[in-house]
Design a protein around this nucleic acid. Structure first.
Length: 195
DNA sequence: CTTTGGATCGTCT
DNA sequence: GACGATCCAAAGG
């Protein structure tokens, strides 16, 4: 069943661990492609020096200051796309970075979407840019509605989040690196790095 | 297994 | 003009 927008309209640090196990479904291609969240990070907007939203809305970050339940997609390192689920209330700039997922259906489509030949299945979607490449997310999806939209939807298939999720500091930051705002499914092979 | 460096360009100062 | 919420191959142990 779909995840309600009100469920997403809460602080990123509350929402992030609860999203572990949630499913993203893409209906863009021929076959249905589905992935399950295994690793996320919370970004707390104006209060968080690590967030792209820290200095207020810009052309790039505008979507984060809109309503919850939309994708914030950004381009980085000159070649990679990454995606967040916008959460909280309008104007707060909160988001949950989708860092890794487990492939569920559409494995062949995702393998074809990866530029490099992926040898092991757990290398297919085990990183924020890998999952976007495999799942077909780019800048055209920035602002896409994942609650009540057309091409990508976030749903709850009954899988509960882990009772005790793994937790660590966020990865790849220079500022705000002290906060333990990364959560993951313990022992899952589809992680951007081991727990 | 771990470490290191190159690729590559939109965004903001 | 500097730099990044990354990925990958190559080299070393």
């Amino acid at each position: 069943m779909p995840i309600a927008r009100e469920m997403l309209a809460r602080p990123a640090v509350q929402l992030a661990p609860r999203l572990l196990g949630a499913v993203l479904v893409s209906t863009v291609g021929d076959a249905e492609v589905a992935i399950r969240l295994t690793e996320v990070e919370a970004y707390e907007g104006l209060d968080d020096p690590a967030s792209h939203a820290f200095r207020g809305p810009t052309r790039r970050t505008g979507v984060m200051f809109g309503p919850a339940g939309h994708l914030y997609c950004y381009f980085t390192y000159g070649m990679h796309w990454c995606a967040n689920a916008v959460c909280g209330d309008e104007g707060e700039g909160l988001a949950v970075l989708l860092r890794a997922v487990a492939p569920l259906t559409g494995l062949e489509e995702m393998r074809a979407a990866r530029k490099l030949k992926v040898r092991r299945e757990h290398d297919l979607c085990s990183g924020p840019a890998k999952l976007c490449q495999a799942f077909g997310v780019t800048g055209v999806h920035d602002g896409a509605d994942i609650v009540d939209g057309q091409d990508i939807l976030i749903v709850d298939d009954g899988t509960a989040p882990p009772r005790r999720p793994g937790n660590s500091v966020r990865i790849g930051l220079t500022a705000g690196a002290e906060h333990p705002w990364r959560w993951f499914v313990p022992g899952d092979p589809n992680l951007s790095r081991p727990g």
